[in-house]
Nucleic acid binder design. Structure first.
Lengths: 332, 332
DNA sequence: TTGTAAGCGTTATCAG
DNA sequence: CTGATAACGCTTACAA
């Protein structure tokens, strides 16, 4: 076993113990070919015996590559973010990279400080999925020679590429289809400060209604299940029907539960569509129709783009992932 | 292979441009006191002008501290794990640490390889929450001078401490209480390979029943909503009542939905308790009674322990976080 | 095939 | 208060 009193074993000690030079040991570590099989064996044996592990820090300094990827996100525990992170970790691992997490907690200050840390951290590349950061920030970081993939943010530049989400198109289709066949007034659940994505979708909602000369409603709500539930218990005292577009499953569930508790039928009286659908949309009764993007896949794609960008062989610098409609029981 | 137009600005260039030495610039960077205000100003001005950011890699090599914490987890997108990770990131950020994520995908090989990466990565400490890793692994990593907090795994050692979850106690209380007042047969939902925690809880379930000379059932199920739902649709064709303990909310929801679709009443005919409760337990109808541990808090605690351990001032090397029962509508 | 030695960008220990 | 200079652990020409 390993002696745990002393400091880490270094390449020097391996060299000395094996009777070879630093360079040779280094070659063995890095699987270089120009080493005799005999030498390699001996060195590997001493490495195993001493329990030597190369220091990624020293390697990074020497090679100017850290094999670290920075990931900037507002929080780690939103379902769609953690799904993306999981996709990223898998794809990163397959390529030999390690992820470093930088969370911004939805504040601009934290976001700026996160960006600075990303730069000092000497990551080989970064994935940024954060509404607090805008085009300038992404470009700033790339001016430090850090290739960046911006998620949900249209940015381009020398070492910057982006992966955006396509919701508007699908939303317009859904709305126009509903204009044909549906009869309820449509409401958009506005959440204050819920970010660019929701804002964009809301704009699409509004403009489609205006273009088609339709009446619509915007309802402000809290990004919390309980609060929204209570608000809608109130709302349904006077309003007895409607088609509601909610940001996430939990908000959609709040509306559904409030509707039912107000003796309204879903979807006959009240229809609900969740914009960011997760697997929970399928568990809640009635199941919630939703727009869906596979965020694990997004993670994989983003990592793939980043790897290509780092190697300078990324051709398409803008990729759009389209959402799909998953029709369930909360809509007709 | 590197074709960067312009390399990063280094401390050398700042020194040259400002007319001071490396040492002085370094002092300014590190906010040392022994620098004239005038000098500091000048240096800071050049730093800003050149856009210089110190290299964390070089700092790490020089100081032998990376300000990185390794986090080993099976996946990033389980709700309770991502909650813990979010707690960790917050607590880490407050202490100036950055998290590096190592995911093991539930495989022993990946787990071993993750551990090796943790060691090579030169992290200042590690948090391990992974069932593939056992006591030896945690001790091995700590033999590399890496302080470790093992979550959900009782380990001790020089640089190792642990944070475990208390479910058994509460479970026994719940069961014994039910033995007094309840009348249904209790079933435990066994999920193959769902890890140590569930296995431990299952043992407590069985032993309590045996001690009290009670009849019980163990049902094997898949860790998937849809499969479990179908299984229970089948199950409820012959069995018309029961008290079911399910690992997670989604499994509990599958039972509830299957029961209702089989015209059984919840909780009158079928009672369900979720072991790892999340916020979704409160959204599903009927709301799901569950045992609960605040995983974000666990993240904070774990980081706090690690910080103390790293500074050699951790007194309690074993901390147990007790779960609480949240009584909702799926049990009587 | 192997060894020597010069970096990589910092910090830290000395002197001055 | 400031400046040389030697580490830190590894890679990589360049030599042998």
């Amino acid at each position: 076993m390993v002696d745990n009193i002393k400091d880490r074993v270094t390449i020097y000690e391996v060299a000395k113990a094996s009777g070879f030079s630093l360079a040779t040991v280094s070659r063995v570590i890095n699987n270089q070919t120009n080493v005799t099989e005999k030498t390699r064996k001996k060195v590997e044996e001493t490495i195993a015996r001493l329990g030597y592990k190369p220091s990624a820090v020293a390697q990074a300094l020497a090679t100017n590559r850290s094999t670290n990827i920075g990931v900037v996100i507002p929080r780690a525990n939103y379902v769609y973010i953690s799904n993306m992170v999981n996709g990223l970790t898998e794809a990163a691992r397959d390529r030999g990279y390690v992820l470093s997490l930088f969370v911004t907690s939805h504040s601009k200050d934290e976001a700026i400080s996160a960006m600075n840390k990303v730069i000092t951290s000497h990551v080989d590349g970064a994935i940024i999925f954060d509404d607090e950061l805008d085009v300038e920030d992404a470009q700033k970081i790339s001016s430090y020679q850090v290739p960046v993939i911006a998620v949900n943010n249209k940015v381009t530049g020398d070492k910057v590429a982006c992966l955006t989400f396509g919701y508007e198109h699908l939303l317009r289709d859904i709305l126009r289809d509903y204009f044909q066949n549906g009869d309820k007034k449509m409401y958009f659940l506005h959440v204050h400060n819920a970010g660019r994505l929701l804002a964009r979708i809301e704009r699409a909602f509004v403009s489609t209604h205006i273009e088609d000369n339709r009446n619509y409603g915007i309802l402000s709500c809290d990004d919390s299940y309980s609060k929204t539930y209570l608000d809608f218990i109130d709302f349904f005292k006077t309003t007895k029907s409607g088609y509601f577009l909610a940001y996430r499953d939990s908000i959609a569930a709040a509306i559904i539960n409030a509707a039912r508790d107000s003796h309204l039928r879903v979807p006959e009286d009240v229809e609900v569509l969740s914009i960011i659908g997760t697997k929970y949309a399928n568990i809640i009764r009635p199941t919630i129709s939703s727009m869906y993007i596979d965020m694990q896949l997004v993670g994989h794609k983003a990592m793939e783009m980043l790897a290509d960008l780092m190697e300078g062989k990324l051709d398409r610098k803008q990729i759009k992932v389209e959402s799909t409609l998953i029709k369930r029981d909360s809509t007709l």
